[in-house]
Amino acid sequence: MNLNLRALLSTFLFLVFTTGLAYPLLVTAIAQIFFPFQANGSLIVNDGKAVGSRLIGQNFSSEGYFWGRPSATAPYPYNAGLSGGSNLGPLNPALVQSVNSRIHMLQAADPGNRAPVPVDLATSSASGLDPHISLSAARYQLGRVARARGMPLEVVDGLIAAHQEPSLFSATGEARVNVLELNLALDDIKPR
């Protein structure tokens, strides 16, 4: 068995060059020419300053904002520098405990609301950066947000409807709204 060293090295270097350099650079060139907004992270710019990305969720905890899903990133929620999920198994007592405390937190912020909590609002997302909540999770928070901001229910409800993102089939994702965009729209109408 003769070792064809020349073929080995030349083939390897050729493939490193084409697949490791030419291919990603070609994709970058096409991306930057035709889709620069998406390729650079879908940043939302307000008054010349980037306030976030429409694809990356942010942490909200005051009553006047819609809250996103719980985030399990470390050391603080919605740490975009290190994505991660909770990885809690379905039988893990820690899962039941965290869902339970989240439900209590939601109910404490809106004592009059006794409706069942939509599941996405109490369970943590896979990436810890989920930018969306389901339509029902937004409606669940409607009363609290409108009251905290002193805005009429219909106006806030109209904003939710305007921000609903269409889904391909409803099965490939729930009907949903982008939390950061919705909250920015709230601030636009009535700055806090």
């Binding site: 899903r69 999920g85 909770s86 990885n87 809690l88 379905p90 039988l91 899962l95 039941v96 869902v99 339970n100 439900i103 109910q107 409706a115 069942p116 909590v117 939509p118 599941v119 996405d120 109490a122 369970t123 943590s124 997302s125 896979a126 990436s127 989920d130 969306h132 909540i133 389901s134 029902s136 993102e165 889904s167 490939t172 994702g173 729930e174 949903r176």
Partner: peptide, 21 residues
Amino acid sequence: LLAGLGLDQTAGNLEGKEIRF
């Protein structure tokens, strides 16, 4: 295990899942 906590689980098990999927 989560059914008794006052949770609406019609969307299924969403722990560790993204809403857009």
